[in-house]
Design a binder for these strands. Structure first.
Lengths: 138, 138, 138, 138
DNA sequence: GTGGTCTAGACCACT
DNA sequence: GTGGTCTAGACCACA
């Protein structure tokens, strides 16, 4: 159903979202998103990352914060720096994972939800109904 | 349906759990848990809170960290300090909220899950199945 | 009557004084001073607060003590945190109040004085004379 | 104008007032009040103090707190313990001081008021007017 | 450089 | 026993 794509693709800054007001550091939010987009296959080895400046202005964030995220991803060998050309998703970056592996990445968040729901004395049924409506609304 | 309880109840430190490895500050985790337990009705106005030292040792955390959480809850008027005797859940603390209000407290977390699921290219069906199994397993 | 000032003003740590030997906690003294300086108009919304470390060394106090005051003022929405840049007086911070409102802030202290004067069997005239001389001497 | 009084007088618990909600310890408030009442001559050597229990219930305070104040006053030799009969104001307790000495006891509080007034940018005239009205209203 | 969080340990006020 | 305050010092996130 999806058309074949050229080997080198320019990624857009719109891929990333940050939640300000959370205590979770922005640079870590970016790193986690990168990992998920890679696991989900929306980012492929060889893709060109949007520039630091582009992401920074799109998110309203300091460029150094984005730069830090990129550097740490480079240290993990998920990104490769091409001098003067920007960052590229590394060829060795593990591509899309299978469904079970990706679901496992979601598990910690869901377990947290379950804990909160239990503290709120909420029925599983109600929680699932709300999640369903949110997932469908996307 | 629930049997009548003595007016003053001594709460246990087991009510609280902290997740190490998260960037969310411990004191804030405690505050959020208190709010949820109150909204869910598991903590009632008039209940005696476990002592700072008790919670600190139960969680393996510095007493000042727990004290900070208690202080901020006192500033919010959710807790009342009885000098020399410990903290009590404030009479004015809004007791258990209705289901809709409690579900709203869960919404931000679920929206985050939805975002992550979409980045992982996961089908709603799979996500809901996993949440269901986790909720049932509790 | 006052000359126009640059929009962002850097406040000095000299604004704050702490009284050692009082049982009133240092961090609370700082909070009360901030409120008065704001009500009196000596601090304006948009002003940049002196850094935690600066105030701490100026007062000979532990940085955490100053930080606690700043945090509580932030919780009250009197201060806004600019990550990595310091604290700013919040735009929503109610600026200078009118004379009657400011006098009301002084009333509790004056009532305490009146009680003490009555216990000391002092004539109003003598008390007022002393206060006058102190106020003029400033 | 005041009639001569019998040598031994039973003092009332109404002499004391405490401000809850202040950070100043209650026992210290009591001690300071005793000193002022003595300096002002409202309490005389030989007077019988109200019992700990009486003061405690009148002020809504824990008896041990009152007891602590009494003990410290005894340690200062301002009170004498008569076994089974309660506390008496010590004969050696320095009686009423002259006006200048009593005014000096009021000075620290007035200096604090002056500092606060200056931070509130209040005119001496306004502050004095408010104090006058409070003193007259007593 | 900025503020935030946490620890370990001390002392205080109050019951 | 209760909580509160303060210190000294460490590490983190952000600019």
């Amino acid at each position: 159903m999806t058309p074949p794509e050229p080997r080198e693709r320019q990624l857009s800054a719109d891929l990333f979202r940050v939640a300000t007001g959370t205590s979770e550091p922005i640079y870590r939010q970016l790193i986690e998103q990168m990992r998920r987009l890679l696991a989900g296959g929306q980012i492929q080895p060889g893709d060109a990352m949007p520039s630091v400046r582009e992401v920074a202005t799109a998110l309203g964030v300091n460029p150094m914060t984005v730069s830090k995220a990129y550097s740490m991803l480079e240290a993990e060998a998920l990104l490769t720096r091409r001098r003067g050309l920007g960052m590229v998703v590394a060829a060795q970056a593990s591509g899309s994972a299978d469904v079970e592996a990706r679901l496992e990445l979601l598990r910690p968040g869901l377990e947290r939800i379950a804990t909160e729901a239990s503290q709120l004395e909420l029925e599983p049924k109600a929680v699932i109904a709300l999640l369903t409506s949110i997932l469908k609304g996307k």
